[in-house]
Design a protein around this nucleic acid. Structure first.
Lengths: 254, 254
DNA sequence: ATCATAAGTATCAAATAATGATACTGCAAC
DNA sequence: GTTGCAGTATCATTATTTGATACTTATGAT
Protein backbone atom coordinates (compact mmCIF):
# COMPACT_ATOMS: atom_id res chain seq x y z
CA UNK A 1 0.00 0.00 0.00
CA UNK A 2 1.60 3.19 -1.15
CA UNK A 3 -0.97 5.35 0.57
CA UNK A 4 -0.07 8.63 2.17
CA UNK A 5 1.78 8.01 5.41
CA UNK A 6 -0.44 8.57 8.41
CA UNK A 7 0.19 8.92 12.05
CA UNK A 8 1.45 5.51 13.22
CA UNK A 9 -1.64 5.32 15.41
CA UNK A 10 -3.81 5.15 12.34
CA UNK A 11 -5.24 1.68 11.80
CA UNK A 12 -5.82 1.26 8.10
CA UNK A 13 -7.75 -1.95 8.46
CA UNK A 14 -10.43 -0.27 10.53
CA UNK A 15 -10.67 2.62 8.10
CA UNK A 16 -11.21 0.17 5.28
CA UNK A 17 -14.01 -1.53 7.13
CA UNK A 18 -15.73 1.80 7.63
CA UNK A 19 -15.55 2.45 3.91
CA UNK A 20 -17.81 -0.50 3.33
CA UNK A 21 -20.39 0.96 5.69
CA UNK A 22 -20.17 4.32 3.98
CA UNK A 23 -20.76 2.76 0.59
CA UNK A 24 -24.44 2.38 1.41
CA UNK A 25 -26.71 5.33 0.76
CA UNK A 26 -30.05 6.17 -0.76
CA UNK A 27 -28.98 4.99 -4.20
CA UNK A 28 -27.14 1.94 -2.90
CA UNK A 29 -29.56 0.20 -0.61
CA UNK A 30 -27.98 -3.19 -1.03
CA UNK A 31 -24.61 -4.11 -2.45
CA UNK A 32 -22.98 -7.20 -3.82
CA UNK A 33 -19.36 -8.02 -3.18
CA UNK A 34 -18.40 -6.84 -6.65
CA UNK A 35 -20.27 -3.57 -6.20
CA UNK A 36 -18.56 -3.00 -2.89
CA UNK A 37 -15.24 -3.52 -4.62
CA UNK A 38 -15.89 -0.80 -7.19
CA UNK A 39 -17.52 1.61 -4.71
CA UNK A 40 -14.81 1.38 -2.10
CA UNK A 41 -11.87 0.99 -4.43
CA UNK A 42 -10.49 -1.75 -2.22
CA UNK A 43 -9.12 -5.09 -3.31
CA UNK A 44 -11.57 -7.88 -3.83
CA UNK A 45 -9.92 -9.91 -1.08
CA UNK A 46 -10.05 -7.06 1.37
CA UNK A 47 -13.73 -6.44 0.68
CA UNK A 48 -14.40 -10.12 1.09
CA UNK A 49 -12.78 -10.11 4.51
CA UNK A 50 -14.33 -6.87 5.70
CA UNK A 51 -17.80 -7.84 4.55
CA UNK A 52 -17.46 -11.19 6.23
CA UNK A 53 -16.38 -9.56 9.46
CA UNK A 54 -19.08 -6.90 9.40
CA UNK A 55 -21.64 -9.61 8.81
CA UNK A 56 -20.30 -11.70 11.68
CA UNK A 57 -20.41 -8.67 13.93
CA UNK A 58 -24.01 -7.93 13.03
CA UNK A 59 -23.32 -4.74 11.14
CA UNK A 60 -24.39 -6.10 7.76
CA UNK A 61 -27.37 -8.22 6.87
CA UNK A 62 -26.90 -10.71 4.10
CA UNK A 63 -29.51 -12.15 1.79
CA UNK A 64 -28.56 -15.79 1.41
CA UNK A 65 -30.31 -15.93 -1.95
CA UNK A 66 -28.82 -12.93 -3.71
CA UNK A 67 -25.72 -12.76 -1.49
CA UNK A 68 -26.14 -9.05 -1.29
CA UNK A 69 -25.34 -7.09 1.84
CA UNK A 70 -27.63 -4.59 3.50
CA UNK A 71 -27.42 -2.31 6.54
CA UNK A 72 -28.57 -4.05 9.71
CA UNK A 73 -30.68 -2.88 12.61
CA UNK A 74 -27.43 -2.05 14.37
CA UNK A 75 -27.30 1.09 12.26
CA UNK A 76 -30.41 2.32 14.03
CA UNK A 77 -28.95 1.43 17.40
CA UNK A 78 -26.07 3.72 16.63
CA UNK A 79 -28.52 6.50 15.92
CA UNK A 80 -30.11 5.80 19.29
CA UNK A 81 -26.76 6.24 21.01
CA UNK A 82 -26.20 9.42 19.06
CA UNK A 83 -29.48 10.88 20.19
CA UNK A 84 -28.61 10.37 23.83
CA UNK A 85 -25.15 11.81 23.36
CA UNK A 86 -26.18 15.07 21.76
CA UNK A 87 -27.60 17.31 24.49
CA UNK A 88 -29.37 19.56 22.00
CA UNK A 89 -31.69 16.76 20.90
CA UNK A 90 -33.51 16.34 24.20
CA UNK A 91 -33.95 20.08 24.51
CA UNK A 92 -35.40 20.49 21.03
CA UNK A 93 -37.57 17.41 20.71
CA UNK A 94 -40.47 18.37 22.98
CA UNK A 95 -40.70 21.86 21.51
CA UNK A 96 -40.65 20.44 18.02
CA UNK A 97 -43.42 17.97 18.84
CA UNK A 98 -45.49 20.79 20.26
CA UNK A 99 -44.97 22.93 17.17
CA UNK A 100 -45.84 20.06 14.91
CA UNK A 101 -49.06 19.37 16.74
CA UNK A 102 -50.20 22.97 16.77
CA UNK A 103 -49.40 23.80 13.17
CA UNK A 104 -49.54 20.43 11.49
CA UNK A 105 -46.63 21.29 9.25
CA UNK A 106 -43.33 19.50 8.74
CA UNK A 107 -40.65 20.70 11.15
CA UNK A 108 -36.99 19.78 11.37
CA UNK A 109 -33.94 20.30 13.50
CA UNK A 110 -30.97 21.03 11.25
CA UNK A 111 -27.42 21.05 12.58
CA UNK A 112 -24.32 22.32 10.88
CA UNK A 113 -21.93 19.53 10.04
CA UNK A 114 -18.87 20.81 8.24
CA UNK A 115 -20.13 22.51 5.10
CA UNK A 116 -23.40 20.59 5.10
CA UNK A 117 -26.39 20.63 7.35
CA UNK A 118 -27.75 17.39 8.71
CA UNK A 119 -31.35 16.88 9.68
CA UNK A 120 -31.25 15.30 13.08
CA UNK A 121 -34.92 15.47 14.06
CA UNK A 122 -37.84 15.43 11.66
CA UNK A 123 -41.56 15.48 12.25
CA UNK A 124 -43.21 14.85 8.91
CA UNK A 125 -46.81 15.44 7.98
CA UNK A 126 -48.83 13.63 5.36
CA UNK A 127 -47.51 15.62 2.45
CA UNK A 128 -43.86 15.16 3.34
CA UNK A 129 -41.77 13.18 0.89
CA UNK A 130 -39.91 10.14 2.08
CA UNK A 131 -36.46 11.70 1.76
CA UNK A 132 -37.63 14.64 3.84
CA UNK A 133 -39.12 12.40 6.51
CA UNK A 134 -36.11 10.46 7.64
CA UNK A 135 -33.29 11.70 9.78
CA UNK A 136 -29.63 11.76 8.87
CA UNK A 137 -29.97 13.44 5.49
CA UNK A 138 -27.13 15.81 4.63
CA UNK A 139 -27.36 18.66 2.15
CA UNK A 140 -24.95 21.46 1.27
CA UNK A 141 -25.52 24.18 3.85
CA UNK A 142 -25.44 27.14 1.47
CA UNK A 143 -28.44 25.81 -0.42
CA UNK A 144 -30.74 25.70 2.58
CA UNK A 145 -32.57 28.24 4.69
CA UNK A 146 -31.19 26.50 7.77
CA UNK A 147 -27.60 26.73 6.63
CA UNK A 148 -27.94 30.38 5.77
CA UNK A 149 -29.59 31.36 9.01
CA UNK A 150 -26.91 29.55 10.97
CA UNK A 151 -24.14 31.22 9.00
CA UNK A 152 -25.84 34.54 9.57
CA UNK A 153 -24.84 34.31 13.22
CA UNK A 154 -21.17 33.74 12.45
CA UNK A 155 -18.34 36.21 12.00
CA UNK A 156 -17.82 37.99 8.70
CA UNK A 157 -14.60 36.09 8.12
CA UNK A 158 -16.25 32.74 8.59
CA UNK A 159 -19.13 33.69 6.32
CA UNK A 160 -16.75 34.91 3.64
CA UNK A 161 -14.78 31.71 3.83
CA UNK A 162 -17.92 29.61 3.63
CA UNK A 163 -19.18 31.55 0.64
CA UNK A 164 -15.91 30.92 -1.16
CA UNK A 165 -15.31 27.30 -0.39
CA UNK A 166 -18.49 25.50 0.61
CA UNK A 167 -20.19 23.43 -2.06
CA UNK A 168 -23.44 24.19 -3.85
CA UNK A 169 -25.54 21.64 -5.63
CA UNK A 170 -28.38 22.58 -7.94
CA UNK A 171 -31.27 20.37 -6.85
CA UNK A 172 -34.02 22.15 -8.78
CA UNK A 173 -34.10 24.55 -11.76
CA UNK A 174 -34.75 27.30 -9.25
CA UNK A 175 -31.76 26.54 -7.04
CA UNK A 176 -29.68 29.65 -6.53
CA UNK A 177 -26.11 28.81 -7.44
CA UNK A 178 -24.82 32.37 -7.52
CA UNK A 179 -22.68 32.93 -4.46
CA UNK A 180 -23.33 36.66 -4.49
CA UNK A 181 -27.06 36.04 -4.22
CA UNK A 182 -26.47 33.64 -1.38
CA UNK A 183 -24.34 36.24 0.37
CA UNK A 184 -27.28 38.63 0.14
CA UNK A 185 -29.55 35.98 1.57
CA UNK A 186 -27.24 35.52 4.53
CA UNK A 187 -27.04 39.25 5.08
CA UNK A 188 -30.83 39.44 5.14
CA UNK A 189 -31.03 36.53 7.51
CA UNK A 190 -28.56 38.29 9.75
CA UNK A 191 -30.78 41.37 9.83
CA UNK A 192 -34.11 39.62 10.13
CA UNK A 193 -33.22 36.67 12.31
CA UNK A 194 -34.80 34.20 9.92
CA UNK A 195 -34.46 32.95 6.38
CA UNK A 196 -37.04 31.92 3.82
CA UNK A 197 -36.25 30.08 0.62
CA UNK A 198 -38.46 28.84 -2.17
CA UNK A 199 -37.92 25.84 -4.40
CA UNK A 200 -34.29 25.41 -3.44
CA UNK A 201 -34.22 21.76 -2.56
CA UNK A 202 -37.57 20.84 -4.08
CA UNK A 203 -39.92 22.67 -6.37
CA UNK A 204 -43.08 23.99 -4.79
CA UNK A 205 -41.50 23.99 -1.38
CA UNK A 206 -41.17 26.99 0.87
CA UNK A 207 -38.72 26.65 3.68
CA UNK A 208 -38.50 28.83 6.77
CA UNK A 209 -35.63 28.58 9.22
CA UNK A 210 -34.69 30.32 12.45
CA UNK A 211 -31.44 29.84 14.36
CA UNK A 212 -30.95 28.28 17.77
CA UNK A 213 -28.51 30.73 19.29
CA UNK A 214 -26.26 30.27 22.28
CA UNK A 215 -25.46 32.89 24.90
CA UNK A 216 -22.70 34.14 22.62
CA UNK A 217 -25.22 34.77 19.85
CA UNK A 218 -23.74 32.04 17.70
CA UNK A 219 -25.79 29.21 16.22
CA UNK A 220 -24.88 25.68 15.17
CA UNK A 221 -28.42 24.56 14.59
CA UNK A 222 -31.72 25.79 13.24
CA UNK A 223 -35.39 24.98 13.36
CA UNK A 224 -36.96 24.71 9.97
CA UNK A 225 -40.50 24.43 8.66
CA UNK A 226 -41.31 23.22 5.18
CA UNK A 227 -44.63 23.96 3.52
CA UNK A 228 -45.97 23.53 0.05
CA UNK A 229 -46.19 26.65 -2.07
CA UNK A 230 -49.59 25.40 -3.16
CA UNK A 231 -51.02 25.97 0.28
CA UNK A 232 -48.84 28.88 1.41
CA UNK A 233 -47.28 31.96 -0.06
CA UNK A 234 -44.24 33.58 1.51
CA UNK A 235 -46.24 36.34 3.11
CA UNK A 236 -48.51 33.89 4.88
CA UNK A 237 -45.52 31.91 6.09
CA UNK A 238 -44.09 35.08 7.55
CA UNK A 239 -47.31 35.96 9.28
CA UNK A 240 -48.51 32.61 10.51
CA UNK A 241 -45.46 30.46 11.08
CA UNK A 242 -42.56 32.80 11.70
CA UNK A 243 -43.63 34.22 15.07
CA UNK A 244 -44.39 30.77 16.44
CA UNK A 245 -41.12 29.33 15.15
CA UNK A 246 -39.11 32.20 16.60
CA UNK A 247 -40.91 31.70 19.86
CA UNK A 248 -40.15 28.01 19.86
CA UNK A 249 -36.47 28.52 19.08
CA UNK A 250 -36.03 31.21 21.68
CA UNK A 251 -37.11 28.77 24.35
CA UNK A 252 -34.21 26.49 23.53
CA UNK A 253 -30.81 27.17 25.10
CA UNK A 254 -28.32 26.83 22.22
CA UNK B 1 -4.27 -13.21 21.31
CA UNK B 2 -5.55 -16.53 22.54
CA UNK B 3 -9.05 -15.85 21.26
CA UNK B 4 -11.20 -18.55 19.76
CA UNK B 5 -10.01 -19.31 16.25
CA UNK B 6 -12.25 -17.73 13.68
CA UNK B 7 -12.64 -18.18 10.01
CA UNK B 8 -9.43 -16.87 8.44
CA UNK B 9 -11.56 -14.26 6.70
CA UNK B 10 -12.37 -12.70 10.03
CA UNK B 11 -10.54 -9.42 10.52
CA UNK B 12 -10.07 -8.95 14.23
CA UNK B 13 -8.90 -5.38 13.94
CA UNK B 14 -12.16 -4.28 12.38
CA UNK B 15 -14.18 -6.11 15.01
CA UNK B 16 -12.25 -4.30 17.72
CA UNK B 17 -12.99 -0.96 16.17
CA UNK B 18 -16.69 -1.76 16.14
CA UNK B 19 -16.55 -2.56 19.82
CA UNK B 20 -15.64 1.04 20.51
CA UNK B 21 -18.71 2.21 18.64
CA UNK B 22 -20.91 -0.22 20.51
CA UNK B 23 -19.62 1.01 23.85
CA UNK B 24 -21.77 4.11 23.52
CA UNK B 25 -25.36 3.92 24.66
CA UNK B 26 -27.92 5.82 26.68
CA UNK B 27 -25.85 5.54 29.85
CA UNK B 28 -22.53 6.18 28.11
CA UNK B 29 -23.04 9.31 26.09
CA UNK B 30 -19.38 10.24 26.07
CA UNK B 31 -16.37 8.16 26.94
CA UNK B 32 -12.78 8.79 27.87
CA UNK B 33 -9.96 6.61 26.68
CA UNK B 34 -9.79 4.88 30.05
CA UNK B 35 -13.52 4.23 30.07
CA UNK B 36 -13.33 2.78 26.59
CA UNK B 37 -10.61 0.46 27.82
CA UNK B 38 -12.75 -0.94 30.62
CA UNK B 39 -15.95 -1.09 28.57
CA UNK B 40 -14.43 -2.83 25.58
CA UNK B 41 -11.95 -4.98 27.45
CA UNK B 42 -9.30 -4.14 24.88
CA UNK B 43 -5.72 -3.13 25.53
CA UNK B 44 -5.05 0.51 26.21
CA UNK B 45 -2.86 0.74 23.15
CA UNK B 46 -5.46 -0.82 20.92
CA UNK B 47 -8.15 1.54 22.18
CA UNK B 48 -5.82 4.45 21.62
CA UNK B 49 -5.27 3.44 18.02
CA UNK B 50 -8.91 2.62 17.28
CA UNK B 51 -10.20 5.81 18.84
CA UNK B 52 -7.65 7.82 16.92
CA UNK B 53 -8.66 6.16 13.67
CA UNK B 54 -12.39 6.51 14.29
CA UNK B 55 -11.85 10.16 15.05
CA UNK B 56 -9.81 10.68 11.90
CA UNK B 57 -12.50 8.98 9.88
CA UNK B 58 -15.21 11.19 11.32
CA UNK B 59 -16.95 8.48 13.29
CA UNK B 60 -16.12 9.93 16.69
CA UNK B 61 -16.26 13.51 17.86
CA UNK B 62 -13.66 14.57 20.37
CA UNK B 63 -13.87 17.33 22.92
CA UNK B 64 -10.42 18.93 22.93
CA UNK B 65 -10.92 20.10 26.51
CA UNK B 66 -12.05 16.95 28.22
CA UNK B 67 -10.55 14.62 25.59
CA UNK B 68 -13.69 12.58 25.70
CA UNK B 69 -15.14 10.92 22.62
CA UNK B 70 -18.72 11.16 21.46
CA UNK B 71 -20.76 9.75 18.57
CA UNK B 72 -20.60 11.93 15.49
CA UNK B 73 -23.22 12.99 12.98
CA UNK B 74 -22.03 10.10 10.85
CA UNK B 75 -24.06 7.84 13.11
CA UNK B 76 -27.21 9.52 11.86
CA UNK B 77 -26.07 9.20 8.27
CA UNK B 78 -25.88 5.48 8.79
CA UNK B 79 -29.47 5.53 10.00
CA UNK B 80 -30.39 7.40 6.84
CA UNK B 81 -28.85 4.68 4.71
CA UNK B 82 -30.66 2.07 6.77
CA UNK B 83 -34.01 3.72 6.18
CA UNK B 84 -33.56 3.60 2.43
CA UNK B 85 -32.41 0.02 2.53
CA UNK B 86 -35.34 -1.40 4.45
CA UNK B 87 -38.32 -1.58 2.08
CA UNK B 88 -40.82 -1.83 4.93
CA UNK B 89 -40.00 1.66 6.14
CA UNK B 90 -41.28 3.52 3.11
CA UNK B 91 -44.46 1.46 3.10
CA UNK B 92 -45.20 2.09 6.76
CA UNK B 93 -44.17 5.69 7.17
CA UNK B 94 -47.04 7.44 5.39
CA UNK B 95 -49.66 5.28 7.10
CA UNK B 96 -48.08 5.94 10.45
CA UNK B 97 -48.06 9.69 9.86
CA UNK B 98 -51.71 9.54 8.91
CA UNK B 99 -52.59 7.57 12.02
CA UNK B 100 -50.64 9.93 14.21
CA UNK B 101 -52.41 12.95 12.79
CA UNK B 102 -55.89 11.49 13.14
CA UNK B 103 -55.53 10.13 16.65
CA UNK B 104 -52.82 12.29 18.12
CA UNK B 105 -51.32 9.37 19.99
CA UNK B 106 -47.80 7.98 19.91
CA UNK B 107 -47.34 5.31 17.24
CA UNK B 108 -44.35 3.14 16.47
CA UNK B 109 -43.11 0.61 13.99
CA UNK B 110 -41.49 -2.26 15.87
CA UNK B 111 -39.44 -4.89 14.08
CA UNK B 112 -38.22 -8.18 15.40
CA UNK B 113 -34.46 -8.25 15.73
CA UNK B 114 -33.26 -11.52 17.18
CA UNK B 115 -34.93 -11.85 20.57
CA UNK B 116 -35.53 -8.12 20.89
CA UNK B 117 -37.76 -5.72 19.07
CA UNK B 118 -36.32 -2.53 17.71
CA UNK B 119 -38.36 0.61 17.21
CA UNK B 120 -37.54 1.76 13.72
CA UNK B 121 -40.12 4.51 13.27
CA UNK B 122 -41.60 6.61 16.03
CA UNK B 123 -44.08 9.45 15.96
CA UNK B 124 -44.17 10.90 19.45
CA UNK B 125 -46.80 13.19 20.89
CA UNK B 126 -46.34 15.75 23.63
CA UNK B 127 -46.62 13.28 26.47
CA UNK B 128 -44.09 10.85 25.07
CA UNK B 129 -40.90 10.35 27.09
CA UNK B 130 -37.56 10.97 25.46
CA UNK B 131 -36.53 7.32 25.41
CA UNK B 132 -39.81 6.46 23.71
CA UNK B 133 -39.40 9.19 21.11
CA UNK B 134 -36.17 8.23 19.47
CA UNK B 135 -35.63 5.42 17.05
CA UNK B 136 -33.23 2.54 17.46
CA UNK B 137 -34.28 1.50 20.94
CA UNK B 138 -34.18 -2.24 21.55
CA UNK B 139 -36.17 -4.04 24.20
CA UNK B 140 -36.67 -7.75 24.93
CA UNK B 141 -39.45 -8.90 22.63
CA UNK B 142 -41.32 -11.01 25.16
CA UNK B 143 -41.95 -8.00 27.34
CA UNK B 144 -43.74 -5.98 24.68
CA UNK B 145 -47.11 -6.09 23.01
CA UNK B 146 -45.34 -5.83 19.67
CA UNK B 147 -43.08 -8.77 20.33
CA UNK B 148 -45.97 -10.92 21.44
CA UNK B 149 -48.19 -10.09 18.54
CA UNK B 150 -45.38 -10.86 16.12
CA UNK B 151 -44.64 -14.16 17.80
CA UNK B 152 -48.34 -14.96 17.67
CA UNK B 153 -48.03 -15.35 13.91
CA UNK B 154 -45.14 -17.83 14.15
CA UNK B 155 -45.19 -21.59 14.34
CA UNK B 156 -45.78 -23.35 17.65
CA UNK B 157 -42.19 -24.61 17.67
CA UNK B 158 -40.76 -21.17 17.22
CA UNK B 159 -43.00 -19.73 19.91
CA UNK B 160 -42.05 -22.50 22.32
CA UNK B 161 -38.39 -21.94 21.66
CA UNK B 162 -38.75 -18.20 22.16
CA UNK B 163 -40.63 -18.69 25.40
CA UNK B 164 -37.85 -20.87 26.70
CA UNK B 165 -34.79 -18.95 25.63
CA UNK B 166 -35.58 -15.31 24.97
CA UNK B 167 -34.70 -12.85 27.72
CA UNK B 168 -37.10 -10.98 29.96
CA UNK B 169 -36.22 -7.84 31.83
CA UNK B 170 -38.42 -6.44 34.58
CA UNK B 171 -38.72 -2.75 33.72
CA UNK B 172 -41.56 -1.92 36.13
CA UNK B 173 -43.05 -3.58 39.23
CA UNK B 174 -45.90 -4.71 37.01
CA UNK B 175 -43.72 -6.36 34.37
CA UNK B 176 -44.84 -9.91 33.80
CA UNK B 177 -41.82 -12.16 34.16
CA UNK B 178 -43.71 -15.43 34.28
CA UNK B 179 -43.20 -17.22 31.01
CA UNK B 180 -46.44 -19.11 31.35
CA UNK B 181 -48.38 -15.87 31.55
CA UNK B 182 -46.55 -14.59 28.51
CA UNK B 183 -47.42 -17.78 26.66
CA UNK B 184 -51.08 -17.09 27.45
CA UNK B 185 -50.69 -13.57 26.16
CA UNK B 186 -49.27 -14.84 22.90
CA UNK B 187 -52.07 -17.37 22.58
CA UNK B 188 -54.63 -14.61 23.03
CA UNK B 189 -52.85 -12.43 20.52
CA UNK B 190 -52.92 -15.30 18.09
CA UNK B 191 -56.69 -15.59 18.51
CA UNK B 192 -57.51 -11.91 18.56
CA UNK B 193 -54.98 -10.55 16.09
CA UNK B 194 -53.78 -7.92 18.51
CA UNK B 195 -52.12 -7.58 21.90
CA UNK B 196 -52.64 -5.12 24.70
CA UNK B 197 -50.29 -4.72 27.64
CA UNK B 198 -50.36 -2.42 30.62
CA UNK B 199 -47.44 -1.05 32.57
CA UNK B 200 -44.94 -3.47 31.09
CA UNK B 201 -42.23 -1.11 29.98
CA UNK B 202 -43.44 1.92 31.87
CA UNK B 203 -46.01 2.40 34.59
CA UNK B 204 -49.26 4.04 33.53
CA UNK B 205 -48.72 3.05 29.95
CA UNK B 206 -51.10 1.03 27.87
CA UNK B 207 -49.67 -0.46 24.74
CA UNK B 208 -51.60 -1.83 21.79
CA UNK B 209 -49.92 -3.71 18.97
CA UNK B 210 -51.09 -5.33 15.75
CA UNK B 211 -48.93 -7.37 13.40
CA UNK B 212 -47.89 -6.53 9.86
CA UNK B 213 -48.42 -9.86 8.18
CA UNK B 214 -47.06 -11.10 4.89
CA UNK B 215 -48.90 -13.25 2.38
CA UNK B 216 -47.79 -16.30 4.33
CA UNK B 217 -49.49 -14.94 7.43
CA UNK B 218 -46.20 -14.44 9.18
CA UNK B 219 -45.13 -11.14 10.75
CA UNK B 220 -41.73 -9.65 11.45
CA UNK B 221 -43.03 -6.27 12.43
CA UNK B 222 -45.87 -4.63 14.29
CA UNK B 223 -47.59 -1.30 14.62
CA UNK B 224 -47.91 -0.16 18.16
CA UNK B 225 -49.77 2.64 19.92
CA UNK B 226 -48.88 3.82 23.39
CA UNK B 227 -51.33 5.77 25.52
CA UNK B 228 -51.41 6.86 29.11
CA UNK B 229 -53.62 4.87 31.43
CA UNK B 230 -54.69 8.20 32.89
CA UNK B 231 -56.50 9.14 29.72
CA UNK B 232 -57.47 5.67 28.48
CA UNK B 233 -58.63 2.41 29.91
CA UNK B 234 -58.16 -0.85 28.06
CA UNK B 235 -61.73 -0.99 26.90
CA UNK B 236 -61.54 2.41 25.31
CA UNK B 237 -58.28 1.48 23.59
CA UNK B 238 -60.00 -1.56 22.16
CA UNK B 239 -62.94 0.44 20.94
CA UNK B 240 -61.32 3.59 19.68
CA UNK B 241 -57.82 2.69 18.58
CA UNK B 242 -57.86 -0.99 17.72
CA UNK B 243 -60.07 -0.85 14.62
CA UNK B 244 -58.09 2.02 13.17
CA UNK B 245 -54.76 0.39 13.89
CA UNK B 246 -55.88 -2.91 12.36
CA UNK B 247 -57.08 -1.01 9.36
CA UNK B 248 -53.78 0.80 9.04
CA UNK B 249 -51.75 -2.38 9.34
CA UNK B 250 -53.88 -4.30 6.88
CA UNK B 251 -53.04 -1.71 4.24
CA UNK B 252 -49.36 -2.53 4.50
CA UNK B 253 -47.95 -5.45 2.53
CA UNK B 254 -45.69 -7.30 5.01
C1' DA C 1 -28.97 -28.64 -22.54
C1' DT C 2 -24.24 -26.63 -23.07
C1' DC C 3 -21.09 -23.42 -22.75
C1' DA C 4 -19.09 -18.95 -21.51
C1' DT C 5 -18.62 -15.46 -18.29
C1' DA C 6 -19.02 -13.41 -14.22
C1' DA C 7 -19.52 -13.51 -9.19
C1' DG C 8 -18.45 -15.43 -5.08
C1' DT C 9 -15.33 -18.44 -2.14
C1' DA C 10 -11.13 -20.60 -0.43
C1' DT C 11 -6.08 -20.92 0.21
C1' DC C 12 -1.46 -19.58 1.30
C1' DA C 13 3.29 -17.66 1.24
C1' DA C 14 5.15 -13.03 2.00
C1' DA C 15 5.81 -9.05 4.66
C1' DT C 16 3.27 -5.35 6.08
C1' DA C 17 0.90 -3.46 9.65
C1' DA C 18 -1.05 -4.19 14.19
C1' DT C 19 0.56 -5.35 18.71
C1' DG C 20 1.36 -4.35 23.61
C1' DA C 21 4.94 -3.34 26.77
C1' DT C 22 6.99 0.56 28.33
C1' DA C 23 8.47 5.10 28.80
C1' DC C 24 7.14 9.93 28.60
C1' DT C 25 4.20 14.07 29.45
C1' DG C 26 0.87 16.86 31.46
C1' DC C 27 -2.81 17.64 34.54
C1' DA C 28 -5.25 17.64 39.01
C1' DA C 29 -5.68 16.63 43.65
C1' DC C 30 -3.64 16.56 47.94
C1' DG D 1 5.86 20.41 45.71
C1' DT D 2 4.63 15.64 45.25
C1' DT D 3 1.83 11.90 43.90
C1' DG D 4 -1.13 9.45 40.96
C1' DC D 5 -3.66 9.00 37.01
C1' DA D 6 -5.01 9.77 32.20
C1' DG D 7 -3.43 10.47 27.96
C1' DT D 8 0.43 10.27 24.47
C1' DA D 9 4.51 8.58 22.04
C1' DT D 10 7.86 4.94 20.68
C1' DC D 11 9.53 0.61 18.97
C1' DA D 12 11.08 -4.23 18.49
C1' DT D 13 8.41 -8.39 17.74
C1' DT D 14 5.47 -11.14 15.28
C1' DA D 15 0.83 -12.14 14.61
C1' DT D 16 -2.21 -10.50 10.97
C1' DT D 17 -3.46 -8.72 7.08
C1' DT D 18 -2.45 -8.96 2.40
C1' DG D 19 -3.41 -9.90 -2.52
C1' DA D 20 -2.46 -13.16 -6.08
C1' DT D 21 -4.42 -17.14 -7.61
C1' DA D 22 -7.10 -21.15 -7.99
C1' DC D 23 -11.51 -23.13 -7.21
C1' DT D 24 -16.64 -23.26 -7.15
C1' DT D 25 -21.05 -21.74 -7.98
C1' DA D 26 -24.44 -18.92 -10.34
C1' DT D 27 -26.21 -16.62 -14.57
C1' DG D 28 -27.70 -16.14 -19.05
C1' DA D 29 -26.85 -16.55 -23.97
C1' DT D 30 -26.97 -19.66 -27.80
Amino acid sequence: MLEKKQNPLFVGTLAKGLRLLRAFDESHVSLSLAELVTLTGLEKSAVQRMAHTLHQEGMLERDPGTRRYRPSHAWLELAYAYYWSDPLISRVLPKLVEFSRVHGETVNLAQISGDHIIYSLRLPNQRTQFAASIVGRRVPALGTASGRVILATWSDDEVAHALETWPIRAATPKTITDRGAIADGIACASQDGYSITQGQMMLNEISLAVPIVGIDGRANAALQVAVSSHSFDIERVREELLPALLDTASGIPG
